[in-house]
């Protein structure tokens, strides 16, 4: 009885000591996603299951330590700098304040990366607002040979077409800062729809798989550049 009591006592002290010693313990991840909460009225929160599904694929297929959910950051938050990978999507209007433009500019100059995915209807406002951040670096269409289309899964013809809205081929645009691809903009494909859980948008399985592979390419590209 005394032995059992002693064992329990030692275990309790050890547990107490450990919790005190590592009270500041934090979780570290190889990769997380910061979803941009922008102003202007657009639904920045659209495709809610897309990023958890992507993060799960990053963990399952690439073997990286990732969080289960994305973080939500405003461009004016200081926590913006804790998220080297930002994701922006929606259907409506986007608006960056001057302070946010300044913050975002600094973010990109320090090595940050943004993937903007047009969920249908944000093209005009995104182009307008991102031009404020990069007044001297326009969006340019990336050639099919660009590494982002071949980082892990090969896409010989550029972006896959996931969800039909207005017809026409998908386009992948980029903004380069000092030779580095800082912004990747997927237009007229709606990768985010394809990342959503089965049945949400009725995308066929093969297109959802294509969307997931392309998104994994973007993730891996950002971790290597």
């Amino acid at each position: 009885m005394m032995i059992i009591a002693t064992v329990f006592l030692i275990s309790f002290i050890k547990l107490l000591f450990t919790s005190v010693l590592y009270s500041e313990e934090i979780k570290i991840y190889d990769f997380t996603i910061g979803r941009i909460h922008y102003d202007g009225g657009g639904d920045w929160y659209s495709d809610p299951s897309s990023l958890p599904n992507l993060l799960k694929a990053v963990r399952d297929r690439l073997g990286l330590h990732v969080s289960a959910e994305e973080s939500v950051v405003k461009p004016s938050d200081q926590t913006l700098y804790d998220h080297p990978f930002l994701y922006l999507t929606g259907h409506g209007n986007i608006s960056f304040s001057p302070a946010e433009v300044k913050m975002l500019r600094a973010y990109f100059e320090r090595g940050g990366f943004l993937w903007a995915d047009d969920n249908y209807g944000m093209d005009e406002s995104f182009r307008r607002e991102i031009a404020k951040v990069f007044p001297d670096s326009p969006l340019v269409e990336l050639p099919f040979s660009h590494l982002i289309y071949h980082t892990y899964y090969p896409f010989q013809h550029g972006l896959p077409k996931i969800h039909e809205h207005d017809g026409g081929p998908p386009h992948g645009y980029g903004i380069f800062l000092n030779g580095r691809l800082a912004v990747f903009y997927s237009f007229n494909t709606d990768i985010g729809d394809g990342l959503e859980s089965e049945g949400v948008h009725d995308d066929p399985p093969q297109l959802r798989e294509e969307a997931l592979k392309m998104a994994l390419n973007i993730v891996l590209f950002s971790l290597n550049n």
Partner: peptide
């Protein structure tokens, strides 16, 4: 293993003009 740290090192190397790079994940 790809991570933010690896990305930072690769960006630092990219700023060097006289280095040829091989990357393996």
């Amino acid at each position: 293993q790809p991570s933010w740290d690896m990305g930072f090192i690769l960006r630092a190397i990219a700023s060097l003009e006289n280095i040829e790079l091989e990357i393996y994940n």
